[in-house]
């Protein structure tokens, strides 16, 4: 096991409350923040990547997320779980990024969808087979928030209670949204 693998393994085993306690102590705050990044970077990256599609965009958004976390972690009061708080920041950053993408180029929704589809086809960091590509295209047809709900349930297998906390939406509404998303995707996969 190399040095970074060891650090990762330590970070994955450390509890969120230990990270927060270490962060509050001045002399261990940098170490604690590093452990937080190691512990959550992959989960947050995939959450962001599935929304923004392009790797470079996902990298930018993820780094912004961690900078925001670093700036406000000392004010985090543990009323929410650290994990859901991080997802909240990442989700907001994703939605802000996509909104800016539309306004920056004055793009209508269909053009953003087309641009994201292009990112799938042209990316060096995409290697899905035909059915996976079809699934990604079906996902891009969903409204952004429904796509978020689908990704969190289907790919990340998150509990509805946690999703409800992150998206500030009732569990019932989330279940209905996921159900509709599944139906739309199944129809797209069957018809295309």
């Amino acid at each position: 096991m190399n040095r970074s693998e060891t650090a990762l393994s330590i970070s994955m085993s450390i509890s969120d409350s230990d990270i927060l306690n270490k962060f509050r102590a001045k002399d261990t705050s940098n170490e604690a923040f590093n452990q937080l990044v190691l512990k959550y970077q992959e989960r947050l990256y995939w959450h962001i990547r599935r929304m923004v599609i392009d790797h470079d965009d996902a990298d930018d958004v993820l780094q912004n997320v961690f900078i925001k976390v670093w700036k406000s972690l000392d004010r985090f009061r543990e009323e929410a779980k650290l994990y859901t708080w991080l997802y909240q920041i990442a989700t907001n950053e994703c939605l802000t990024f996509l909104k800016k993408k539309k306004t920056r180029y004055f793009l209508p929704i269909n053009d953003v969808e087309a641009e994201l589809e292009q990112s799938i086809s042209n990316s060096d960091y995409y290697s899905g087979d035909e059915i996976q590509e079809k699934l990604q295209k079906a996902l891009l047809k969903l409204p952004e928030k429904q796509r978020l709900v689908f990704n969190m349930k289907y790919f990340e297998e998150m509990k509805y209670d946690d999703m409800s906390e992150i998206l500030k939406t009732s569990v019932g509404a989330l279940k209905a949204s996921y159900h509709h998303a599944v139906k739309k995707i199944e129809n797209y996969l069957t018809e295309n």
Partner: peptide
């Protein structure tokens, strides 16, 4: 409810990341 969707192997992500991305990000 969605047999077509259920048949897709979701464990293998079609998205890739550059080599050593996660080891250099921190």
């Amino acid at each position: 409810t969605a047999p077509k969707l259920a048949s897709i192997n979701k464990e293998e992500s079609p998205f890739k990341v550059p080599d050593n991305y996660f080891s250099t990000l921190p």
